[in-house]
């Protein structure tokens, strides 16, 4: 498994989306690069190593809660990865985390790119569209979210 494939598999566990959906956004490599840049590739590798060590199947989620989400250093970063996928944007880590583990200059609220904004999972989960970026059809705003879903 390549590092990108590991990141996608890890993100599938975090977000509850299928790997094909995450890979299908076209921005997985960009999000991984952003994570590496903001909190350092070494920290990403640590997250991926913890993920790789999780038991397979149904127990993975519970085990991830204990070994990743409850970890004071890795937990907040993993939560940020969820936000990254949902919004295509980076959200600044909590002050406590920055005080304890160091504040990266790129750890500030910012949109990663126009593409990542459009690919944010929040839109499809809500049955909506990124405003002003992807057309949804004339008059679609009058229809209930999800009513035109395939």
């Amino acid at each position: 498994m390549t590092r990108l494939e590991q990141f996608i598999a890890f993100s599938a566990l975090l977000t509850g989306e299928e790997a094909v959906a995450l890979s299908g956004t076209g921005v997985a490599a960009e999000l991984l690069a952003a994570l590496d840049e903001i909190t350092g590739a070494a920290l990403t590798d640590e997250l991926l190593a913890r993920f790789a060590a999780l038991p397979a199947g149904m127990q993975a989620e519970q085990a991830a809660g204990d070994s990743i989400m409850a970890d004071p250093r890795l937990g907040p970063v993993a939560r940020n990865v969820i936000l990254l996928w949902l919004t295509g944007s980076w959200t600044q880590l909590p002050d406590a985390w920055r005080d304890s583990f160091g504040a990266s200059p790129s750890d500030r609220n910012h949109v990663i790119s126009a593409q990542s904004y459009q690919a944010g999972l929040q839109w499809t989960i809500a049955g909506a569209h990124p405003s002003g970026a992807l057309q949804q059809g004339y008059g679609a705003w009058a229809m209930a979210p999800g009513s035109t879903a395939p």
């Binding site: 956004t25 499809t124 057309q135 059809g137 035109t148 395939p150």
Partner: peptide, 14 residues
């Protein structure tokens, strides 16, 4: 038309 735009996501995903 909105239905068409909603399955555009599947096209991209594939």
């Amino acid at each position: 038309v909105p239905f068409m735009f909603s399955f555009r996501n599947m096209v991209n995903e594939l």
